[in-house]
């Protein structure tokens, strides 16, 4: 039941977010039309991190249980994360062009998103290099956990050591959010919408994995 209503509800929700971002939310001072990219850039970046976390959690579960389905789940999370990571990079790059004058200038935040792309690429390269299924699962699970442990260095430490032009992420040192009520409504709705979108997408992928495993079992 929920599975049928959810996509419909999600569609309307995301539509409202898009309308809200372009028509309802006021523009921030000094940023002008650029404000609008915020409602899509931050949620995609957030979903990237969420997908990365999900992938690492599934990897841990695989290593603990050695049940192959968790490996497929981890792969699914990474595939989705990769897509959202590309979206976050592109929206961020548009922001950078408009606000700092160039599409890419190795700001610490840009470096960290680029590293995430590299990690995903390396993860998929590793998966393609190993043929044996359980070996592939174990090696890529270890790599994904290892990569997950080093990412905080990019996200939290490197931008602290090196000055970044990037506006503070959700939690800034003062612990407050500089947005007016209307902007905040659209922003949080978009964040929620994208999170549910990710959950919906990964649920579809997880069901596919289960069907795939079932088919394989039947073949044997």
């Amino acid at each position: 039941m929920l599975n049928r209503i959810l996509p419909f509800f999600l569609f309307i929700w995301i539509c409202l977010v898009i309308i809200g971002a372009f028509l309802y939310a006021p523009l921030a001072e000094g940023l002008g039309e650029l404000t609008r990219v915020l409602y899509f850039h931050v949620p995609t970046a957030w979903v990237t991190v969420l997908a990365f976390l999900t992938g690492a959690v599934f990897s841990v579960l695989y290593l603990k249980s050695k049940s192959i389905k968790y490996d497929y789940y981890a792969e699914s999370a990474s595939q989705l994360g990769f897509v959202f990571c590309i979206l976050a990079t592109i929206t961020g790059s548009i922001w950078a062009k408009m606000s700092w004058g160039s599409f890419w200038n190795w700001d610490p935040r840009e470096t960290s998103v680029f590293i995430l792309l590299l990690i995903y690429a390396a993860y998929f390269a590793l998966r393609s290099a190993v043929e044996q299924e359980d070996k592939k699962a174990a090696l890529s699970a270890v790599y994904s956990i290892l990569a997950f442990v080093t990412v905080p260095f990019f996200v939290f430490i490197v931008p602290r050591v090196y000055t970044s032009l990037h506006p503070d992420p959700l939690v800034n040192p003062e612990g407050e959010i500089h947005m007016d009520a209307k902007m905040l409504t659209v922003f949080l709705s978009s964040l929620a919408g994208f999170t549910v979108l990710f959950i919906w997408m990964i649920r579809i992928k997880m069901n596919l994995v289960l069907i795939h495993l079932k088919l394989k079992e039947m073949e044997n």
Partner: peptide, 27 residues
């Protein structure tokens, strides 16, 4: 250790290490 278990040995080592070692390189 990961690479030694994978079939294409030399080629992937740098690719896999670089993202993991980059925080070290930067600092």
């Amino acid at each position: 250790a990961i690479i030694a278990k994978a079939s294409s040995r030399g080629a992937l080592f740098t690719v896999l290490s670089f993202p993991v070692l980059l925080p070290l390189l930067i600092s």
